[in-house]
Each structure stands twice: as C-alpha cells, then as structure tokens.
Amino acid sequence: MTVPKGKLIPIGGSEAKGQEATDASSELRQPTFFESGILAEFLAEVKGPGSRIEIIPAASEVPEEMGKAYLDAFHNLGCKNVHVLYIDSLKEADSPDNLRRIDKADGVLFTGGNQTTLIDKLLDSQLIRNIQQRYQYDDFVIAGTSAGAAAMPRLAIKEGKSSESLIKGMVETEKGLSLLPGAIIDTHFMQRSRLPRLTEALLRNPGLLGIGLCVDTGVVITQGNVLRAIGSGGVFIVNADDVLDTNYHDIRELTPVYVNKLHITILANGASYYLNERIFTKTDETVIQS
C-alpha cells in the first residue's frame, strides 16, 4: 500500500460547560477553544498563515454560524485565505466550483456536529475521492474536530451510549471516509466516559486500533502511521489485539462484558506512537521517513 504524503489531524472536540448549553453552542465553542493551540498547530502543518484553507461544516446543524466562527478564529491567527465550503447534499458536494476549490486548497478542516450527517453527504462523492487522492499523493493536510475526526477512519462509530460498564450491544458502527484504514476514533473521550463504547467497537472489529481523543487534544498522523500528540489533554490508544479472555462473543446483548489483557497507552504532548507497529515513543526520538 502506498504511504500517504499528506497528514491527518483528528481533534477531540470541545464541549460547553453548564446544563443550559445546547448542542449547537457546544459546537460553536470549538474554534475559540482551539484558537491558541490546535488551530495554530494545524496552520503550522500546512503552510503557515499563507495557507489556503477550506472549512467544511457539513456535519453541523448550524453550518453558517460554525463557518463564521472558524473564519474569525483563523483570521485571528493571521490566515486570511480561508473559506467555508457549504455542502447540504451529495449533489451539492460535487459541484464544479467545490471540486475546483479542493484542488486549490492546501488543507481542509471538517467541523464538529454529527458524523453520520457528514458521512451521508460525502461518502460516495467525487469531492471526498478528490480529498482522498490529495491526501495520498500531495502535501495536503486534513483536520477534523469531534464528528469530523470520528468520520475519518474506514469504520466510524455511528452511535453508542456511554456507560459505567461495558455492555454488549451499545455501539453501532458505519462506513467512514476511509482516510485512516487501521484505526477507529472516538472523541470527547474522558469527558463523556467513552472507553466502554470504543472497547466494544474494537471487540466487534478485531485488528483495529482505538484512538480516544480528549477535548482540546489532537494527533498529527504522518505517513498514515506515525502519530504525534498535540494539545492540552490526553490521547488514549486502546489495543485489543492481545485480549486473552472475553465473554463478548458468547453472551446476549445488554449483558455486561469482561475483558482480560486490554492494553491502553496514554499519550500527551511529547509522546508519539507508531500505529502499525503498536510502539510508543517519545516524540523527540520518533523517526519520520523522508
């Protein structure tokens, strides 16, 4: 398989504080929450403030408000050549103008919202195929926050209730955007107690690696393999390859699950991970092949 020339930056998302907050306001907190760190890191991985960036708020229920928030955030970082690409249907995704804009961009950022909504609008589009091609063969950067991150892998978590216990049947998955074939991503990871649902997704789909991203935290993935933690929180690498004992495949749904030898590695700034080799390393010791 060809090593991708581009980079992926999945981000764990943000969440509003207080019971009065709505889902929409939670989404709109993301740009300001990341402004001083994550978005600046994204620009550094592209071509700096001179980059041409396309924001894609297709996952959001409030795309205009979301788009404006990101425009303001990037402008505050000195990036003026940033645009919002509004997509409300598969047909709209493949308009000639949208395809030209992707061809001209240095990077794209998928906002938060609902990953199923994003996948439904883009999965079979020429636009996503063009984005996949640019990631594979160009120095092209794809970021996604919250839903935009969860949609990146070949398999995405569609639904899944958080629970204090691991209960069989709480997770539903769907085909994702196939930018990261060997992993599955969950976001708002510790804030929304999502270890049980990510673990079930791995038990249902052997061979995948779980990446749990906390808020204001992301990873830069180079060559489709080398993962570097960024941001202010933690990244949980969940590996079910060596599970010795589990009742998962023998029990009825809605029954508690036991698991022996689930392996968890926690990354933060200064730590990296080789996805294919399942190896932890300090970032300053990580080797990137040119």
Rank of each mutant, 00 (worst) to 15 (best):
T265P: 00
G224I: 05
A151N: 09
A151W: 05
T173V: 14
A201D: 04
K161A: 12
V226K: 15
Y258M: 13
G210P: 05
R252H: 12
Y258A: 12
C214L: 00
L179P: 04
F189R: 10
R252V: 03
T173W: 01
P196S: 09
H249G: 11
G176Q: 06
R192V: 01
M190W: 00
L254H: 13
Y248P: 00
N239V: 00
L209F: 01
N205K: 03
T199K: 05
L202K: 02
D216E: 14
M152E: 04
I221K: 02
P181K: 12
A156C: 04
G233F: 01
G148T: 07
M152R: 01
P181M: 03
Q223F: 00
E172V: 06
M190A: 14
K158F: 02
G207W: 05
R154G: 13
V259R: 08
D216L: 05
A156E: 05
F189W: 04
S162E: 12
A156Q: 10
G182K: 13
L198S: 08
G176M: 10
Q223T: 00
T255R: 11
G218E: 11
L203N: 03
V259P: 06
M152A: 05
A149V: 01
V171M: 05
G160R: 07
I251D: 04
L179H: 02
Q223R: 14
Q223L: 12
T187I: 14
P196F: 12
I230Q: 04
D186Q: 09
I211S: 09
R252K: 14
L209P: 00
N205R: 05
L244E: 15
I264T: 15
G218P: 03
R204K: 13
D216P: 00
E172H: 11
K158R: 15
G231L: 03
E164Q: 12
D216N: 15
S193D: 13
K261E: 13
A151C: 13
F236G: 00
S193Y: 11
S165N: 14
G212R: 08
V259Y: 09
M152N: 07
I264F: 07
S178D: 15
R194Q: 08
M170T: 13
G176A: 07
S163Q: 11
L166Y: 09
N225A: 08
D250L: 12
L209W: 00
P196N: 12
I157M: 13
P206A: 01
L177E: 06
R154S: 15
L198M: 11
N205H: 14
V220I: 15
P181H: 07
T199R: 07
A183T: 13
G224L: 10
P256V: 02
L180S: 09
Q191N: 10
L177G: 09
L155R: 11
G160I: 03
I230Y: 01
G182V: 00
T265L: 08
I266N: 04
Y248F: 15
M170I: 09
T255I: 10
V219A: 13
A229F: 01
E172Y: 05
H263N: 14
N205W: 03
